[in-house]
Design a protein around this nucleic acid. Sequence first.
DNA 1: AAAAATTACGCAATCGATTGCAATTTCAAA
DNA 2: TTTGAAATTGCAATCGATTGCGTAATTTTT
Lengths: 345, 345
Amino acid sequence: MKKGKRTTIYDIAAKLGITASSVSRALNNSNQVNEKTKELIMKTADELNYKRNILASNLRKGQSKTIGIVVPRINQNFFANVIAGIEEATYQKGYNLIICQSGESHDKEIQCVNTLINQDVDCIVISVSADGNDYQHLQNVIDHGIQLIQFDRVAEELETLKVINDNEQASYEAVSHLIESGYKRIGLLEGPQNLSIFKQRKTGYLRALKAYNIEVIDEIIVENAWTKELGAEGTRKLLNLPQPPDAIFASTSDFSALGVLEVANAMKIKVPAELGVCGYANEGFSEITSPSITTIDQFSIYMGNTVANLYFQEKGNTDTTSKPKIISIKPELIIRGSTAKNAKS
Amino acid sequence: MKKGKRTTIYDIAAKLGITASSVSRALNNSNQVNEKTKELIMKTADELNYKRNILASNLRKGQSKTIGIVVPRINQNFFANVIAGIEEATYQKGYNLIICQSGESHDKEIQCVNTLINQDVDCIVISVSADGNDYQHLQNVIDHGIQLIQFDRVAEELETLKVINDNEQASYEAVSHLIESGYKRIGLLEGPQNLSIFKQRKTGYLRALKAYNIEVIDEIIVENAWTKELGAEGTRKLLNLPQPPDAIFASTSDFSALGVLEVANAMKIKVPAELGVCGYANEGFSEITSPSITTIDQFSIYMGNTVANLYFQEKGNTDTTSKPKIISIKPELIIRGSTAKNAKS
DNA sequence: AAAAATTACGCAATCGATTGCAATTTCAAA
DNA sequence: TTTGAAATTGCAATCGATTGCGTAATTTTT
């Protein structure tokens, strides 16, 4: 085959002395074309190393069989897994994924979304970035008639399909577990409250305290401690308090829990005996720290599958009367060494 | 805006009583159109919420501004980072990424590549899967006039652009470090030898032994130990030998090094005092294990950047006489606790 | 003010595949 | 052999944007 010259259906048609219409139909396995001709066309297509030009096809059909994904960072375990899950479920249906990272920047997120609209994707799957809470660009997606699915970090006020974790319940269970393990003064490292997931986790924390009749102490709640560094910083503050907490729920991530561990270690405070630690997200490393970190698994790959299936399911659905579906996945508390207060450490 | 009806350049043209040609030219900022008209067109385009249909544009222009990526797994640190690096460098130039995972299956890899050819991508970036060593599908990419860039795991016999790590040298340095740290009997966990990267790492190992006049002992070289489980299994075998090694170079990955650590721990063999351990790839967790793992950093994000830049650089290059470029990145040995033989553990 | 040189815009073809409708062929029933 | 229905195939428009070429409008030059 010559470089830079793809075979088209016209080439095939010309070679066989028929029209492109028939070739197209044969290639799409239409039953409007004679079996023998079909075979002949297939064979010739193969010989000529024909590959359908999807651009042309999609342009004509007004679809793209492409799903756009916008996440803060591709190389973050949770997101990479969700993407892998989406890929798994869409690939076999012939869909392609276009992936963008917003890098936690609201502006870049807008850019990404616009690019995807340009690309004529059939669906945009997004987990919003941490800064900014203006969602005009997402409304724009809807206005363009493109299916929008939010996952994990969602803009709640926007009525779209959503796949979320039941963050509040997970959080509630995590804190309950701490309490039942014998910890009495539980600090919280919380994330940016403009993201609903972090708000919900805080709510779960508060609900658990209330359920066990434990007083809420503002002093041991640290705002915006959602990286390892910020988590460490918050922990240092907490542990230097006159009355330090005897457990810390790093509700933002295992990374921040890792920060807790490091500070505790540096201060010679024994985990879990003197300090209980619970993280969030079940990052790969959380089972190999010492002690291993109690955390919450979000079933990220499954979440990706769910997003994909939700899309396929809603694709045929023309019923506009019903409210858009929200699927909530129940995360699972994974109990490990960092909260085993009574085990000898 | 009405759902399902995008504005086209014709809509804009109609509204202004001009032709689509001018609109197109204006939108492309051609200087063939009057400044005032241009402004007017821009404004109208904005009002009508116009978004260029890239499918049509690309079809006409015979390009796609899209780069296809095929990796074994998206949700593997190294690959996720490379992808992030590519994204970083290509996004700002208006390129999109289509990402596929081969799942280490040669068949799926072929499928992925064909899909990407169909999609008319401008370039395919691939790290080949572990099984199979038939590269007809890659030759096919070249025959279609699509730029092919291999990275990390490459098919050596195929003359394409490549971005690789100097695995042999890195491996040589790692083993030298073990030797200089006082370890004398160094076992090797090796990966599938049909992948050149693993072959090179073995070569580096052998070269180091030779350089220090150490005899090669086949007994302490374990084939195909490239997951945590296989690494653990291999380690068990090694440590139960009459003359077990006093260090293990897990040349395949930090995961397998982790397996080593676990087995050593279970057998009450002290790392690094009684057993030195070195991994590969500098996974996030390797610095937080106890002891932390000496490993090799591959500069994965930078590798992604390099791939992208190599593409842009070669795009204009019509010189076909020269051999395709191969860029080799020098990995860095990161020395940590697991090889600190003489430090008290 | 007429001629020459620019500048701005329109016409129509093109990229490759798809598809409604019309035309032709095939085949069986009458 | 004729007729009608069914099976094939062809014709031509279409998806939306781009671009070479030609013409009209405007500006510059003499």
